[in-house]
Design a protein around this nucleic acid. Sequence first.
RNA 1: UGCCCCGUAGUUCAGUGGUAGAAUAAUUGACUGUUAAUCAAGAGGUCGUAGGUUCGAACCCUACCGGGGCAGCCA
Length: 436
Amino acid sequence: MEEFSLETISIIDAPNFVNQKVKIGVWLTDKRSSGKIAFLQLRDGTAFFQGVVLKNAVDESTFDVAKHLRQESSFWITGEIHEDTRSKFGYEIQVASIEVIGESEEYPITPKDHGIDFLLDHRHLWLRSSRPHAILTIRNEVIRATYEFFNREGFTKIDAPILTGNAPEGTTDLFHTEYFDHDAYLSQSGQLYEEAGAMAFDKVFSFGPTFRAEKSKTRRHLIEFWMIEPEMAFMHQEDSLAVQEQYVAFLVQNVIDHCASSLATLDRDPELLRKYTKTPYPRISYDQAIDMLQKAGMDVKWGDDFGSPEETYLADQFEQPVFILNYPKAIKPFYMKPHPTREDIVICADLLAPEGYGEIIGGSERATDYNYLLEQIKLAGLDPKDYEWYLDLRRYGSVPHSGFGLGLERFLTWVTGEDHVRETIPFPRLLNRIYP
RNA sequence: UGCCCCGUAGUUCAGUGGUAGAAUAAUUGACUGUUAAUCAAGAGGUCGUAGGUUCGAACCCUACCGGGGCAGCCA
């Protein structure tokens, strides 16, 4: 085949070019060679596969270049795509020529084991490795499917501000900054703004970063993380729960459908995930949950919030994600709707993921009564002046509305089967870690 | 923030009072189907930092620095 007809392709598309000569821009991930054959493990950002260099099929200098390529050097490679069952990808390239683009010396991340501290210090390079690549591919699919779902369901994306002058949930620590002559904080939730959006657009959602200056140091916490926060006007909690389970099931289904090779890289069983695509999800009340925990001998009393062991126990009693409904008012934020017949609980639900992954969604029906909200704001120790605009939503045509927030990284940790949220975001911000 | 654990070769670790070790990576060489390739060779060190105990400290003590796990808080 003539050079001018050479097509530049991506590895992921190699199956469409079997027995054709092509050109690919690649990096070297690993290499094995013998006297007369060299195996180059290649990646191009879309997939991983190997190139085979036969000494008697290329000129001497090409074989010599191949033997001395170093990990993560970049080069153009030309050759013929072959189907081959001896290759993990199912296809490989029979190399004809190599044109080095960028040298790489002493690449720090070797194919052997590394500790998490070392890997996080080299996150900018670690992204190239197959596991992070697979996880972040799934992250991208979840984001894509999120937009598809909410667009299909008639939601409008309303972006919440990141710089804010108030503290929606008051109690937690906020990142403080300056806004010219005023105090400002980095957003810890877009929810209140989404409520304003819902009154203007009916069904809305936001997707953006949130910041919590908590000194949390666990596998479930990031300082900076991403949330999806839908808010729906004219909707009671029952219908919101239906949206939540359909959304979660849709995300899982799309990961199964579109990320098969990434799941395989992560050893995450798609058949297990398939169980999570069946709706509805079970629902139990907070009261029932307390009862179950006490019967299991756990030391909890009505009014306590659930810790990690409690959440895990509850989730383990079900094969699907489970909603825990109607928590005590005292342990939930001020904006939740009070229960019509019980003063001590609010209309809300947390969705717990199976396998010990814990809470992935928190949501509620929102309080609609102006005077009730004003009182709650005062009780929470917040300044009503900061919430004038929020109270306006109840002053002018208040309607029943509900919403929820899904923590993207927690969701991903569950779907990918990882054991720490830090693996599911490109550049995690952790306690005392803001590099790279 | 509290409790617990860990800082030794580029990396992952062993070494618990008496000459600083292994594997792996990197380098050189051998090998035609490797996939954590194999085999051979040489090379690689301020034992986190500072102080203390001791004839002698990687090892024991104190403080500090860095990291991890769990908990609380939360998504």
